[in-house]
């Protein structure tokens, strides 16, 4: 149901599934124990309670085992994060501009667009700029998100792995039309992308010529 369109999908989904599995295990364990005890030791059947003040080995176990498990979860999240903040040197750089309430993109050759076109299987590094308040650049199909904060250039990178058009949301509340602040990212084959870029560059170079002739 959820698109799988970047190199970060597998690591994020795997970490999520591993942690959720551990969590579900503990939730079922606790719930099953509660239900069992409530039935087994119901006062109708079990008229006399027995005092059990505690059990130190048990306390140590249910402290140490969760500590080991959470350290493992931490490790998974941390290695995934390290990858997300280490863009390859050969990444294509795109500047992303956020403002109330639209996204715009500017490529290094000066081409501007309100939809993000990227070639497949080529790393893209986006530099995030805000023109007013906080926003957050969010592409669910790529499993990435980064806040866009004024006076601060955050970055993010991804490797698109599947052709198609995917939603770009603003995830940080930014006022009246926050929920309408959509855009799209379009993943194209390299040749189609080059064609698009060439066409854009041509029309862009026309525009300034037109204005000077005016």
């Amino acid at each position: 149901m959820l698109a799988d369109a970047s190199n970060f999908v597998q690591p994020v989904d795997n970490t999520f599934i591993i942690i959720v599995s551990i969590c579900v295990f503990f939730l079922i364990l606790i719930t099953a124990l509660m239900i069992t005890f409530v039935i087994k030791y119901n006062s109708k059947k079990n008229k006399k309670a027995k005092n059990v003040h505690g059990n130190v080995p048990l306390e140590v176990t249910w402290t140490v085992v969760p500590v080991i498990l959470v350290l493992y979860m931490f490790y998974l999240g941390w290695t995934g994060y390290k990858h997300e903040v280490s863009p390859p040197k050969n990444s294509m750089v795109v500047n992303v501009y956020a403002q109330m309430w639209r996204w715009s993109y500017k490529y290094s050759n000066g081409v501007e667009s309100d939809t993000l076109f990227v070639p497949i299987n080529k790393p893209v590094k986006v530099l995030l700029h805000s023109r007013d308040v906080d926003h957050s650049f969010y592409i669910p199909a790529f499993r990435i998100k980064k806040d866009v904060i004024p006076n601060r250039t955050n970055f993010e990178w991804f490797l698109p792995t599947r052709l198609g058009t995917y939603d770009v949301f603003c995830a940080e509340y930014c006022g009246l039309r926050h929920s309408y602040m959509y855009s799209a990212v379009v993943v194209l084959p390299q040749d189609k992308f080059d064609q698009w870029m060439a066409k854009q560059a041509a029309s862009d170079s026309d525009t300034p010529a037109d204005t000077t002739s005016m």
Binding site: V12, T15, F16, I19, C23, M73, G77, Y81, R143
Partner: peptide, 17 residues
């Protein structure tokens, strides 16, 4: 437990907000 899920950095970058 849903808090733990979001403690993992790469998952949080997806799920936060």
């Amino acid at each position: 437990l849903t808090g733990i899920i979001q403690g993992a950095l790469n998952v949080d970058l997806y799920l936060t907000d």
